[in-house]
Amino acid sequence: MTQVRRTPLADQAADLLLDRVRAGEWELGAKLPGETTLAPQLGVGRSTVREAIRQLAGRGVLASRQGAGVFVTALDAPEDWDAVLRRADIEHVLEARAAIEVESAALAARRRTPTALRTIRRALMDRDRQRGAGTDVEAHVDADTAFHRAVVAAAGNPILLDLFDGFTPRSRAAMVDMLRIRGTHGDDADQDVHTLLVDAIAARDADTAATLSRAHLASIVAALS
Rank of each mutant, 00 (worst) to 15 (best):
A109H: 05
I120T: 02
W81D: 15
V84Q: 14
R112T: 15
I53Q: 01
G43T: 09
H92N: 13
A116L: 03
Q66S: 08
V49I: 11
K31Y: 06
P78N: 09
A99Q: 07
G67S: 07
P8F: 05
R112C: 14
L107K: 10
E95S: 13
T119W: 01
A83Y: 01
H92A: 15
S47M: 09
A13N: 03
A108H: 07
A10M: 06
L42V: 07
P33Y: 08
D82Q: 04
L9K: 08
T119S: 14
R50D: 14
V93M: 11
A23G: 14
A109V: 08
L75S: 07
R122L: 14
V61C: 01
P33I: 11
L16H: 01
P114T: 07
L38I: 11
E103Y: 03
L75E: 04
D76Y: 01
M125R: 13
A14Q: 01
D82E: 13
R118L: 14
I53W: 00
R112Q: 12
A52P: 11
A63H: 10
R22G: 09
P40T: 06
L38P: 10
L56Y: 09
R65V: 12
G60S: 12
L56T: 11
Q41I: 10
R122A: 15
R59H: 12
R112W: 02
V49C: 06
E35K: 08
I100N: 00
A106M: 05
K31E: 15
D126R: 02
V61D: 02
D126N: 07
V84M: 12
R87K: 14
L117N: 05
S104H: 02
R97P: 01
L124K: 01
D82K: 02
A52I: 03
L56G: 12
P40Y: 02
E27W: 04
R129A: 15
A106H: 01
A106S: 14
L32G: 01
G69W: 07
A39G: 13
L56H: 09
P78C: 08
R54W: 05
T48F: 00
R59V: 07
V61Y: 01
D19V: 06
R118H: 09
A30D: 15
Q12H: 09
A116K: 00
A77L: 10
L124Y: 05
L117C: 06
P40W: 02
L107G: 14
L94K: 02
A83E: 15
A106D: 03
L18A: 00
A77D: 10
A74F: 00
R59L: 13
G24K: 08
R110A: 09
R112I: 12
R22N: 11
A39L: 11
W26E: 13
A123Q: 08
R127V: 13
R54N: 14
L42N: 06
R97T: 03
E95D: 12
Q55I: 09
Q66T: 12
L9W: 04
R87G: 06
G45Y: 03
E51Y: 04
P8H: 04
A10H: 05
F71S: 00
G60D: 09
T36M: 08
L16S: 02
E79L: 13
D11T: 07
A106E: 10
A116T: 02
P33F: 10
L16N: 01
R22F: 05
